[in-house]
Nucleic acid binder design. Structure first.
Length: 333
DNA sequence: AAACAAACCAACCGCGTCAGG
DNA sequence: ACCTGACGCGGTTGGTTTGTT
């Protein structure tokens, strides 16, 4: 008995999404929040399967996605994390909250893999690409991976604990979720997807009637309150800006976008866990760019602390990079 | 300007996992 | 304990864009 298709293939549209479809999906999620994907095509009338809707949202439409070129810092992170975690793109993406796993995967396959191959002609893809061949996984790699998993588990635990104290939400947030986005002080983090949606909305606005506005404070509160207790992949915001018909008016949408772009105040206020105390110190290991330390990078502290500790044991950071890059790290950047 | 190749990336597919019944 | 449905993840594909000859 084979697995039934996620949706009946008859009448299901495939291929690129149109702006109209994006609007419908965004409007629906604005009202109902992400999740229950099964019901999305039915309730919206979209001729797409639930998977496609979820993918479109998580990889393109959801707030907080940063698009465009990867920075050196991000590149280093990906390389290092790939060495540690293998091709676990979702796990890697959890350390880069503004990037989607798909984005990271694509970037790895199109850029970094080649870059590394050039520098490491002796190392084949199987060795480099994580752990496809278990026999090639060294004990050290397994230990590292296990240790990373332990840290990730710790992170999850800390996140869960932090939910008991709402004041700490800005410090310890779901690694790939809405808090990461909300706490970001970089306006550009949403700009790309905001722009995308705004652009497609522009045409729509011309033909749309005016409707009553939702107050921004209300929206902000709703999106904050709705976040507690959700997992990372489904922890997108559910701003409540929809009208009674289940549609978001262009005005509401703009307000929602404005709210989403507003940085959460006091990101740096309270630090509740030991792991985050020396956060800024630790993060400087990777922070070779002079950008502000973002709340969204808090999850890094676990990994970086570990890296830092390992670095203290084994040598310095350069040694770590060397190790993960097979000795060509210095040449790489 | 046309043809071809390479690069890029959005989207699809299939499998694994997990929660609920 | 088992089954089923829903979701998430990683690998892969295919269309589009960009670069080169």
């Amino acid at each position: 008995m084979g697995r039934p298709p996620c949706c009946d293939k008859v009448g299901v549209k495939k291929g690129p999404w149109t702006p109209e479809e994006d609007i419908i999906l965004v409007s629906y999620i604005q009202e109902h929040g992400p999740g229950n994907w099964r019901s999305v095509p039915t309730n919206t009338g979209l001729l797409r399967c639930s998977k496609s809707c979820r993918l479109r949202w998580t990889n393109y439409l959801r707030p907080g996605i940063k698009r465009g070129n990867f920075t050196d810092h991000e590149e280093k992170m990906i390389i290092h994390l790939q060495a540690l975690l293998g091709n676990r793109w979702a796990a890697i993406a959890s350390y880069l909250p503004q990037r989607t796993d798909n984005d990271i995967k694509n970037y790895w396959n199109t850029h970094l893999k080649k870059k590394l191959k050039k520098l490491q002609p002796g190392i084949d893809d199987n060795t480099r690409d994580g752990f496809s061949d278990s026999q090639q996984i060294s004990k050290g790699q397994w230990e590292r991976r296990l240790q990373t998993d332990i840290h990730m588990a710790r992170q999850a635990l800390c996140e869960a604990l932090s939910l008991e104290n709402p004041n700490n939400l800005s410090d310890l947030k779901p690694s790939n979720g809405y808090y990461s986005y909300l706490s970001s002080t970089q306006p550009s983090t949403y700009a790309s997807s905001t722009e995308n949606i705004s652009k497609l909305l522009q045409g729509w606005m011309k033909n749309s009637p005016k409707s009553s506005k939702t107050t921004s404070s209300e929206t902000t509160q709703n999106s904050s309150n709705n976040r507690a207790g959700t997992d990372s992949s489904s922890s997108q915001g559910t701003p409540n800006g929809a009208n009674k018909n289940g549609n978001v008016s262009p005005d509401d949408f703009e307000i929602l976008l404005f709210d989403l772009e507003s940085p959460t105040p006091d990101v740096s206020q309270s630090v509740s866990l030991d792991d985050t105390v020396n956060f800024s110190q630790e993060i400087s290991l990777f922070q070779d760019e002079s950008k502000p330390i973002l709340g969204s990078e808090a999850p890094l502290s676990f990994l970086e602390k570990w890296l830092f500790e390992e670095g203290a044991t084994q040598g310095n950071e350069e040694d770590l990079i060397e190790a993960s890059l097979g000795g060509t790290g210095a040449d790489f950047f």
